[in-house]
Structures are given as structure tokens and as C-alpha cells.
Simulated assay, not measured.
Amino acid sequence: MFSSQWTSSPRKFPPPSIDVLDPSLKIEEETLPTYRPEKYYPIYQGEVLHDRYQVLAKLGYGVTSTVWFGLDLLDSKYVAVKIYVTGQGRNRELDIYNRINSVESDHPGKRFIRRLLDHFSITGPHGQHVCLVHELLGISSSELMEWTPGHAMTLEDLKPVIRQLLVVLDFLHSVARVIHTDLQLKNLLLPAPEPKALSSRTIYLSSFPPTGRGLPLLCDFGEARFGDDEHHEDIMPNPYRAPEVIIRSSWDYKVDIWNVAMIAWDIVSPCTLINGKNQDGVFDDRNHLAELVALLGSPPPHFRQRSHLSSAFWDESGSWKGSAPIPDQTLESLASNITGEDKEGFLRWLRRALRWNPEDRPTALDLLYDEWMMQGLKMRGKGDAAKA
């Protein structure tokens, strides 16, 4: 039924031609260990949500939601609709966006966060589903790296991306008081292609993979936390976890600083900095910490005193107990394939962020104005770095 407020008519889809699959074959969200079908909204292609957003295609899925390519029938533009599973209670991501949007600030970092355009709830067979409507963006940086020769960029290509990310983090930490906790390449989305307007018609630029110009925007605040609170939760993807998270200690904004270094490494190296798997191929905290000891040296006493779990890995003098072998590797040896100028400067910058004690890590602004990060940037004034 056509709504009088719509400026676009809903797309019409032909009757689906469905191949019945073997029910034992799991696909997409069905492969997740926590998957329960009744928690996900049973959407169908062409469905109009909230009398406004028509679902056209699936973009992705996860433990807490599915994401859909949609058409805003009211404003005649494409959007991304995130439909959460039931049983979420208060929606953390919506609360975080409300905090971000309530901040009146001209800080440039706010511009590089994916915008929340709308939100609403729908009722499914098993309860309520919170829906978030975001601006449509392009592919993720992790997908871009898959198509990049050698799966790595140069140190020169790295700097603009990390500069912008640090500007975003300065806004989140110092102005909005938000900790992202889940910084990784898949949560940095490139802009969508811009249409080219002519006098008589609109020509859309061809693009494969679909992406536009510009640096990636930060998205996915589903695991973000308010910085005003004290936190002990288990967060972050396994290889990216900061050491205070591994030993179940309290954590704060500085987990994001640790993650910036991990993202930077993933951009310039085809191999991850941390493997963390034991002989059975299972990610293991003992192997993770053993690798950190190889890369960073033994942790200082103050770090070991943060949690009683430290005694499982180090003795009273700080010596490694040998619960997993310390690999024979260094940052320098792992960085042998990194290309670009001043690799030594990059490793020094990396070590500033990868410190055992979170209080020893610099702020986002400190990392941004590091001598190595500023090399190659022509600045008329200090504030220009935030616009680079």
C-alpha cells in the first residue's frame, strides 16, 4: 500500500525462486555458536519497516544483529538498517549514539563517525527488535586490504588513516567520554560512491567494489562503553585484547590506544602481530601473553599487581613461569616485510602505544602529534592535523 508521504514507490520483487537446502547445512548467522532462530527477526526481501524503510538486500550479520541495504521511501535515499535480536533490553549502541549526538561540539572528529539517521522498534514473533538506521557506507577496510596487493599498504599510506582515527578517538575520549573497545579494520567503513549530478539526470559512478573517495569512517558502537563508569568486562577481539583485559583487570580509554596500534600494524603488514594460538590451534591467553613478553619485554611490577591472575603467568620476581613458550621474535623481525620510509620511527611510535601499563600509553592527541606521525604533513597550524 502506497503511503501519501513517500517520495519513492517501493520496489516490486518477483516471487522468490527458493532452493530448499539441507537443513543440516548452516549458513551465515546459523554458523554462530550462540545462534537461536527465534531471536532473529524473520525479514523478507521487499518488506517495508516503520512505514518508511524498504529492505532490498542483506549486507551482513552478527551475534546481536543483521544489517540490511534499504531504501528510505520518505527521503528517496539508500540507508543501512541494523535489526537487533530480541532480548537486548536497553540498546547499548543507541545509548552511545544518543550521547555522541547530544554533544554540541565543533571538534573535527565528530564528522568521521558514521551517522545514526533514525531508530525505531518492530515486533516479531518472539518479541521486540530495536532497529538503527545508518547512513550507507562502502566496503570495510578489512575487505579493502584483501584486494590490496600483498594485503598491506606502505607506511606513507598508513598515516592519513591513523591520523583521522586518532582525531575521532580524541573526540570520543575527551569530549563525548566514550570508549569504543572494538577498533578493528572491519569497523572502519569507506565512504559510499557519490552520485554525479547533471542538468537533466543523475549519473551514478560505477564502482566495484562499491566505495567512494575519502578515508574510512568509524562505525559499530555495539560494544562501546561510557568512560564515566568503571569497567571489568571481557572486551575486544582475541588478538587485539589489551593486556589489562587479558588478566581481567579494570580498563579505561587506553584500550582504544592499544587497538590503534593493532590496526596500524594490520594495515602495513600481511601478518597479524599476535597469533595467540596453542598447539591445538585454539586461542590461549598463555600464548598471547608469551608473545607480548617476546615483543615488549617483561611487564613492570605495577602491571602484575593489577590482578591476582598475574601469579598464574609470572613469579614474584616477574619471571615468566613458562606456561607457554616465549617465541623467538621481536617487533623488528616481524616488521621485515613492512615497506615505506622510516620504519624505525614507526616501530618507536608503535611501542609508545603498546605499553603494559595503560596509564603509560599516550592519549590519542599525543599519538597524533608524534614526530613520526607528523612527518610528511604540511601544516599551517597545529589544528590542521585534525583535518588531515
Rank of each mutant, 00 (worst) to 15 (best):
residue 9 S to A: 13
residue 10 P to T: 00
residue 12 K to V: 15
residue 19 D to T: 14
residue 21 L to M: 14
residue 21 L to H: 08
residue 23 P to I: 05
residue 24 S to N: 11
residue 26 K to D: 13
residue 29 E to W: 08
residue 30 E to R: 11
residue 31 T to D: 00
residue 32 L to P: 01
residue 32 L to T: 01
residue 36 R to P: 01
residue 41 Y to C: 09
residue 44 Y to N: 09
residue 45 Q to P: 11
residue 47 E to Y: 03
residue 52 R to K: 09
residue 52 R to V: 05
residue 61 Y to S: 07
residue 61 Y to K: 02
residue 61 Y to Q: 04
residue 61 Y to P: 06
residue 63 V to Q: 13
residue 68 W to V: 05
residue 70 G to V: 05
residue 71 L to A: 05
residue 73 L to H: 06
residue 73 L to D: 00
residue 76 S to N: 09
residue 76 S to E: 10
residue 79 V to W: 03
residue 80 A to I: 07
residue 84 Y to E: 13
residue 86 T to P: 03
residue 89 G to A: 00
residue 90 R to E: 14
residue 92 R to A: 14
residue 98 N to L: 13
residue 100 I to H: 08
residue 101 N to R: 13
residue 103 V to S: 01
residue 103 V to C: 04
residue 105 S to R: 01
residue 105 S to Y: 09
residue 110 K to M: 14
residue 111 R to T: 09
residue 111 R to M: 15
residue 114 R to V: 12
residue 114 R to K: 14
residue 114 R to N: 08
residue 116 L to G: 03
residue 117 L to E: 10
residue 124 G to K: 03
residue 127 G to V: 07
residue 132 L to S: 01
residue 133 V to A: 07
residue 134 H to N: 11
residue 144 L to T: 06
residue 145 M to N: 05
residue 147 W to K: 15
residue 167 V to G: 01
residue 167 V to N: 03
residue 168 V to W: 06
residue 169 L to I: 04
residue 172 L to F: 04
residue 176 A to Y: 07
residue 176 A to K: 00
residue 177 R to D: 12
residue 180 H to A: 12
residue 183 L to C: 14
residue 188 L to D: 06
residue 198 L to N: 06
residue 201 R to H: 12
residue 201 R to Q: 15
residue 211 T to S: 12
residue 211 T to L: 15
residue 211 T to F: 15
residue 214 G to Y: 08
residue 216 P to L: 02
residue 218 L to D: 02
residue 219 C to P: 05
residue 220 D to W: 07
residue 221 F to A: 00
residue 221 F to R: 03
residue 224 A to G: 02
residue 227 G to V: 07
residue 229 D to W: 13
residue 230 E to A: 11
residue 237 P to Q: 05
residue 240 Y to W: 11
residue 248 R to K: 15
residue 249 S to H: 08
residue 254 K to R: 09
residue 264 A to M: 04
residue 265 W to N: 04
residue 268 V to M: 00
residue 269 S to P: 09
residue 270 P to K: 06
residue 271 C to I: 09
residue 272 T to P: 10
residue 272 T to K: 13
residue 274 I to W: 03
residue 276 G to P: 01
residue 286 R to W: 02
residue 290 A to W: 07
residue 290 A to V: 06
residue 302 H to E: 13
residue 303 F to N: 10
residue 306 R to C: 10
residue 308 H to V: 08
residue 308 H to E: 14
residue 309 L to K: 11
residue 311 S to H: 12
residue 311 S to G: 13
residue 312 A to R: 15
residue 312 A to H: 14
residue 317 S to P: 08
residue 319 S to F: 15
residue 325 P to V: 10
residue 330 T to N: 00
residue 330 T to F: 01
residue 331 L to W: 04
residue 334 L to I: 02
residue 336 S to H: 10
residue 336 S to Y: 10
residue 341 E to H: 12
residue 342 D to S: 01
residue 343 K to E: 02
residue 344 E to L: 07
residue 344 E to K: 11
residue 353 A to N: 07
residue 356 W to M: 03
residue 358 P to T: 04
residue 362 P to W: 10
residue 364 A to W: 04
residue 364 A to V: 06
residue 365 L to D: 12
residue 367 L to D: 03
residue 368 L to T: 03
residue 369 Y to H: 12
residue 370 D to Q: 02
residue 371 E to M: 03
residue 372 W to D: 14
residue 372 W to Y: 15
residue 375 Q to E: 15
residue 376 G to L: 06
